[in-house]
Amino acid sequence: MWLRVEPGRGIPIYVQLMEQIRMAVASGLLGPGEQLPPVRELAGRLAVNPNTVAKVYQELEREGVITTRRGKGSFVAAGSPQLKEEERKKRLILAVDRLLAEAYHLGCPPEEVMETVRAGLADRPGLEGRELEKELDQS
């Protein structure tokens, strides 16, 4: 399993796991319909509290990243996750802030940042880039 937990970072373990699974789905490492391990099994493998893993699955389901079928297990959802507009916007701005801070310290000019983002979008056919570009144009 590629999932990793790092205690002692000051970030709740369920947040760490959610981020990793979200990333894996966005990058295609986890494909639609793919099954996730049962809660107890994953908790054992990662050596973390089963309630933590259960919470990860619940939250991801709420966000539409995975679906849980009773008695069958949890699966990566087909199609893109459905977050509330406000929540989506907030998270995107946060991610862009991080990107821009890094670009500042690397001394990248704005055109290079934009170009790199466009190239990144072109590499990910699943992600339609309009929203992200709009966000970048504003900042």
């Binding site: 054992g44 050596a47 509290n49």
Partner: peptide
Amino acid sequence: RRQVIKLLVEDVAG
């Protein structure tokens, strides 16, 4: 320590 944690996670908390 890790062995004990896994055991507690799987057999008790689980």
